[in-house]
């Protein structure tokens, strides 16, 4: 046996896994080979080092965890686990749900704000928004500064008509200004408004009468009438569009008290189912533009004469419906 053959058996020799013959051959070689004896000793020391290595111990609680894991899972727990999705699925779904809820919350919040704003604006007749626009020049020199104080004390604003929620009424004026303007009702205007409401009810009962559609809120600066239904809203919108066009009738009303005359015109227009579409104040006159149903123009021309000297500068041969009238109030 040479060194190579002997060394191949050293490991088995240490483990006493050699046959008697193999062991005799190895020991015979070792008796004559000092190098192989040193090699065998080195392997024996190596094995001793490995076998003498400190043991590794399982972590504390290992037995409990294993036993618990081996415990049969109740059917309801298995069902619950089956119903639950794994985290890789649950996390994206959870994130999507959070985003969805957040988005809905924002939409609801925004919708609520719009509704609230609309409801507040609806307490003011649409004319007021227009009036605010036309009142802008009142800051000009010569505007009657005593107009607002001359208004009577406020009456409570009318409840918000739902159909009056029209975004175009959200004008440049602030809400506070609108509310203040709406509150400047005087008793005469309120009476006119009540009469107008009663008349509107009558008209509602007769659909053939298109005036029913003109039951717009009392258009005056001081009034805050309720609205009727969707047809009324549509009709009123028609009036407003018409008002944006050129006036059909241009007239003058000479009265000693311009403010009183203006309030009277506004009340008259409201009573006739019309609306004030614009108002501007000049140095020596106040011009108000109104739109009324065409078939009430005769009544308008007749009754406005009670407020002062009424003269028509131009009028169409046939009254359109609605008819737009520009009245210049002056002394």
């Amino acid at each position: 046996m040479n060194c190579h053959d002997a060394r191949e058996l050293f490991s088995a020799l240490i483990d006493e896994m050699l046959t008697r013959e193999e062991r005799a051959d190895v020991y015979g070689h070792l008796a004559t080979c000092a190098e192989c004896r040193r090699e065998l000793a080195a392997i024996e020391r190596t094995v001793a080092l490995v076998r003498g290595a400190p043991p590794v111990r399982a972590p504390a609680g290992f037995v409990d965890r294993v036993v618990a894991a081996a415990r049969p899972t109740p059917w309801y727990v298995r069902a619950a686990r089956a119903a639950l999705l794994p985290w890789p699925v649950k996390l994206p779904l959870g994130a999507a749900a959070v985003l969805l809820v957040g988005g809905l919350a924002v939409l609801m919040f925004r919708g609520s704000q719009e509704q609230q704003s609309t409801a507040r604006y609806d307490t003011v007749p649409p004319v007021l928004a227009d009036r605010r626009v036309t009142e802008a020049p009142t800051d000009a020199p010569g505007a009657p500064a005593s107009r607002a104080p001359a208004m009577p004390p406020a009456a409570p604003p009318a409840p918000a008509p739902p159909e009056a929620a029209s975004s175009d009424r959200i004008g440049a004026a602030g809400e506070a200004d609108r509310t203040a303007a709406a509150s400047r009702l005087d008793p005469a205007q309120k009476r006119a408004e009540q009469e107008f409401r009663a008349e509107s009810k009558t008209r509602d009962a007769a659909p053939a009468d298109n005036l029913g559609a003109t039951r717009a809120p009392a258009p005056a600066v001081q009034s805050a009438p309720p609205a009727a239904g969707e047809p009324a809203l549509a009709k009123r919108e028609g009036l407003r569009q018409k008002a944006a066009e050129k006036a059909d009738v241009i007239a003058r009303l000479a009265a000693p008290d311009r403010d009183t005359a203006e309030r009277g015109v506004v009340a008259l227009v409201a009573r006739l189912g019309g609306t004030v579409t614009a108002r501007r104040v000049e140095a020596d006159a106040t011009v108000i533009e109104v739109a009324i149903p065409g078939d009430r123009y005769g009544d308008f021309a007749r009754e406005i004469g009670r407020l002062g000297a009424f003269s028509v500068e131009s009028e169409p041969s046939a009254a359109p419906d609605p008819i737009r009238i520009a009245v210049r109030l002056g002394a």
Binding site: P55, V56, R57, A58, P59, F62, V63, V66, V67, A70, R71
Partner: peptide, 18 residues
């Protein structure tokens, strides 16, 4: 026998873990 399983784990935990 569940108690027997626990005994098995106790007896061999360190060796298997090692």
């Amino acid at each position: 026998d569940r108690r027997a399983f626990e005994e098995l784990v106790i007896a061999y935990q360190h060796r298997v873990f090692g």
